[in-house]
């Protein structure tokens, strides 16, 4: 039996002026899964994530846990349980590492116990951040900043995390590390929608994959199936 759809996207379009970045996409993200969106530059992957998190106006419909998100401001969407780790990480460089984490727990004012628990959880999975809590986050390396960005998402305690290119600019070793942690977070019950350029890694990690081309959904399917799909292999896996 399939898990129910946590996020349901129907006929979604995103436009910037005359440019249509996303054209009439529909798909579901099921509870507990890792779904990856792959596709080349400018395929509209980031725009799709921005629409879900309330950062870009859109046409069509987005439903999360049965709630219609149309017109909901970004900061309210966070409190509904969707956390967006943006492309480029969006670290607040003039704040300390700890302040970055605490800021992400903004909506959980009434849950100091839970915040403490998750703070310890973040230190546990990212020991390198634990040693740098009092440091300004601008002084972190790229890998550490990505860890902080994911750590922040954990502090927001979303049921759905949108990850935009978490491996960007990282060495293969660090990318592996980040992907290992994404799998761990998913095992803890968090649903993940992952946008990646590295299609091979993403499909190995994910349960389900959607391939975007020119703002449209080209095809979708179980990740294991897509890994063997000749169209995917030719276009994205370089084989």
């Amino acid at each position: 039996m399939m898990a129910p759809a946590l996020l349901s996207i129907k006929d979604l379009s995103v436009s910037y002026g005359n440019i249509k970045a996303v054209r009439g996409i529909s798909f579901d993200v099921r509870q507990g899964q890792i779904v990856t969106l792959i596709g080349g530059n400018g395929a509209g992957k980031s725009s799709l994530l921005r629409a879900i998190s309330g950062m870009a106006p859109f046409d069509g419909e987005i439903q999360y846990k049965g709630i219609r998100l149309n017109g909901t401001p970004a900061h309210k969407i966070v409190s509904l349980g969707i956390t967006h780790v943006p492309e480029g990480r969006g670290i607040f460089g003039s704040l300390t590492v700890k302040e970055n984490l605490m800021l992400a727990a903004w909506c959980r004012k009434k849950d100091p116990e839970g915040i403490k628990e998750d703070y310890n959880y973040v230190i546990n999975i990212f020991p390198r951040l634990g040693q740098r809590m009092a440091q300004l986050s601008a002084t972190l390396s790229g890998g550490e900043q990505q860890m902080l960005a994911i750590g922040r998402a954990l502090m927001s305690k979303g049921d759905l995390i949108l990850l935009d290119e978490p491996s960007m600019g990282l060495s293969p070793v660090l990318s592996d590390e980040i992907f290992r942690i994404i799998a761990e977070i998913n095992r803890a019950g968090v649903t993940i929608l992952l946008v990646e350029q590295n299609a091979f890694m993403a499909l190995q990690l994910a349960h389900y994959g959607c391939v975007m081309e020119n703002g449209e959904l080209a095809f979708e399917g179980a990740a294991a199936v897509l890994l063997d799909d000749p169209r995917v292999r030719r276009a994205y896996l370089g084989v």
């Binding site: 607040f92 003039s94 800021l103």
Partner: peptide
């Protein structure tokens, strides 16, 4: 304070702040 932290974050990057759940 929380507000002060949000204010400093806002000065740093206004676009990302709503993603933390902060009403800009």
């Amino acid at each position: 304070t929380r507000f002060g932290m949000a204010m400093r974050a806002l000065a740093c990057d206004m676009k990302t702040l709503p993603l933390m759940g902060v009403p800009v």
